[in-house]
Simulated assay, not measured.
Amino acid sequence: MKRTLLILVVGFSAIVLSQGIAKAQVTVEQKPTPPEVKLPTPEKPGPDYQLIPGHWIWHRPSKMYVWVSARWVEKKENRQWNPGHWQKQARGWKWIPGKWEKIKRKRYFFK
């Protein structure tokens, strides 16, 4: 009986907690354009760095997208940067953030 109750409580907790993990889907009527004033790109700090171009992020306190300038980050092994982009939605535009993705390698099968 105690074991069954424990399983039910853990299962219910997992369901409730997973509800808050979903990311907010923020859409805007018009796709914002990058700012006209471009800040200079900082110097590359070393050969193992990848330039992440300027991009948009949702700023919750101001309830608007804000521009983040380009920056250098360390490259991740076996990954490549896939830049963010605007995606057309039924009610406007949504920003899809950039992310690191595994490099897809062709596999060769020999007979």
Rank of each mutant, 00 (worst) to 15 (best):
L17N: 09
W95E: 00
A24D: 10
V26T: 12
S13Q: 04
T4Q: 14
P40E: 13
H59I: 00
V73K: 14
R79W: 00
E77T: 12
I103D: 04
V9N: 07
I57A: 11
K23L: 05
H85V: 08
I21S: 11
K111W: 12
K106V: 11
K75D: 03
P32G: 09
Q80I: 13
G11H: 02
G98N: 06
T4N: 13
G11T: 06
R91G: 04
R79L: 08
I103N: 10
L6T: 13
E74A: 11
T33A: 14
V26L: 09
W56G: 00
K75H: 03
M64G: 12
M64T: 15
E74D: 05
G98S: 05
L17K: 09
P34Q: 04
K44G: 01
M64I: 04
M64S: 15
P32T: 04
A70Q: 12
P42L: 01
V28R: 14
H59C: 02
K75A: 07
R91H: 14
F110N: 02
Y108L: 13
W93N: 02
G54S: 08
P32N: 08
I96N: 06
R91D: 15
P97W: 03
G20D: 07
V37Q: 13
K23P: 01
Q80A: 11
K102P: 03
M1P: 01
L39C: 02
R71T: 04
W58N: 01
G11N: 06
L51N: 05
P45D: 00
Y49E: 06
V37E: 13
L39F: 05
G46I: 06
W56S: 10
K104S: 09
Q19N: 06
R3N: 10
Y65P: 00
L6F: 12
W95M: 01
K2S: 13
D48S: 11
H55A: 05
S13E: 00
K88C: 03
L8W: 01
W58H: 09
W72V: 02
A70G: 11
Q89V: 14
E74Q: 15
K2D: 08
D48A: 09
G98C: 06
M1L: 13
V9I: 15
P42G: 03
Y49M: 12
W72C: 06
Q89F: 10
R79P: 02
P47V: 07
T41Q: 07
V28E: 05
I103T: 11
I15M: 14
S69K: 09
E43H: 08
E43P: 00
L39E: 15
K38T: 13
V10C: 14
Y49S: 08
R107M: 11
K99G: 07
I52N: 04
Y65S: 03
G98R: 03
T33K: 14
G20Q: 06
R107G: 06
E101M: 14
K63D: 08
K111F: 14
L8S: 08
W67T: 00
K63T: 08
A14D: 01
K102T: 10
R3G: 02
I103K: 14
K44H: 02
A70M: 03
R71I: 00
V26D: 03
E36Q: 13
I103F: 03
Q87H: 15
P83V: 08
F109Y: 13
T41K: 13
I7E: 01
H85C: 09
Q19C: 14
R107Y: 04
R91L: 12
V9S: 11
M64E: 15
